[in-house]
Simulated assay, not measured.
Amino acid sequence: MNNVTTLVPKREKTILIFGISSFVGSNLAEFFKKDYRVVGTYNKNPVFIPGVLSLPCDVLNKEEVQLCLYALKPDITIYAIGLSSLMDCSRNEDLADALNASGLFNVVEYCQRYKSQVCYISSGFVFGGEDKNYIEMDIPDPNTTYGKTQASAEFYIQKSSLNYLVFRTCKLYGRGFLESRTTQFEKLQNSFMNRKNVNCDDKVKTGYLDIYYLAMVLKITFEKNVKNRLFQISSNDTATFYEFSKYYCETFSESESLIQKGRWGYPILATAATIPTGEKINFKLDISNIEGFLNIKLPSVKESLEFTFKKLHGVSKASGGRSAGSGDGVTFI
């Protein structure tokens, strides 16, 4: 009797994104929908992304969070909710704590119950801005409300979850999916399009990466089934927004004459243990760990912008860029 082998199609994994209307959440959904079943939640700002199911959910309501995870039983849950503006977090500390930390506590609890890996997107602002290379093992010493809430979330997820990933990132840039929310990158592009002067901060130095680099790194870690790790992701160099804007002009053939050097507000906590005293506030993340672990090479700020230019090639600046590029042909591995 002949043996007959029945091929069972591989089950498509489900990714649940809390905060799909956010800049990070919407771009991750657009990227992952090609290879995963993607479902996202929103609170007050519904967003339409073809091929992605969006559901209303208040992340601060434990019953709604439980219902989402029980009904969908996602393999991976990405927490992309948060108040990311340094000034907005300083002005409304309670809201910052609720969105950046408390909401995550609810998600982690039910991810444990329904056996979903939880992925948290943090940032280099958990550190104090000293002139050094920060490694993953350095103890967070935030001096802003934004950094304080993210450090709290990092600590909680590592102590409470049995299956997590934390990605501590540099500044992420790109175009969003909500007309009512304009990203810093879009504001920069709109200023050049309308021939308006751009006031650019020259105090805070951080890495800059196109949001799709984060998506590509996440995809590799998901495919490798990596668990219980904290990784830092950044360009391999740093720049102020003024320097980033100059790189942008060089890459996108815009006039540097519209760029004006300035200094934006940096709201330091009154209780901060670390207060930068130098000319610059530095957030240099050491990325040797993730480059070695995944065998990848992350780009410089200028190389990231060159990737962005290729990704948006052929897209009119006047269109607003509400559809993200595929990123095909980019080799950073």
Results as ranks from 00 to 15, higher is better:
Met87Glu: 10
Lys284Asp: 01
Val39Asn: 03
Asp328Gly: 08
Pro140Leu: 07
Trp264Gln: 11
Asn163Ser: 13
Ser102Arg: 02
Gly25Val: 00
Val65Asp: 04
Ile76Leu: 11
Tyr36Pro: 04
Leu214Lys: 03
Pro276Val: 03
Leu209Thr: 04
Met137Tyr: 13
Phe332Glu: 11
Leu162Trp: 11
Ile220Asp: 08
Gly174Pro: 06
Ser253Thr: 05
Glu256Asp: 13
Asn133Phe: 15
Lys203Cys: 07
Glu136Ile: 14
Asn236Ala: 06
Val65Met: 06
Tyr42Ser: 00
Glu64Ala: 06
Val198Asp: 00
Met87Tyr: 10
Ser22Lys: 08
Asp141Tyr: 00
Leu67Pro: 03
Pro50Val: 05
Arg181Val: 13
Gly327Pro: 11
Thr240Leu: 03
Leu305Lys: 00
Gln184Phe: 12
Ser253Pro: 01
Lys13Phe: 06
Ile268Trp: 11
Glu186Pro: 04
Thr240Asp: 01
Asp75Thr: 04
Cys111Ser: 10
Gly265Glu: 15
Arg322Tyr: 15
Ala239Ile: 04
Ser316Pro: 07
Arg181Asp: 14
Lys317Asp: 13
Arg181Cys: 08
Pro267Glu: 10
Pro9Leu: 07
Phe18Gly: 06
Ala96Ser: 13
Leu104Ala: 01
Cys89Pro: 12
Pro299His: 05
Tyr134Cys: 08
Asp237Val: 00
Met216Gln: 13
Asn194Thr: 05
Val204Trp: 14
Ala273Tyr: 09
Ala324Leu: 14
Thr145Asp: 02
Gln112Gly: 12
Gly325Ile: 09
Ile78Asn: 00
Leu298Gly: 02
Gly265Arg: 15
Lys205Thr: 07
Thr206Ala: 07
Met87Thr: 14
Arg91Gly: 03
Arg37Tyr: 11
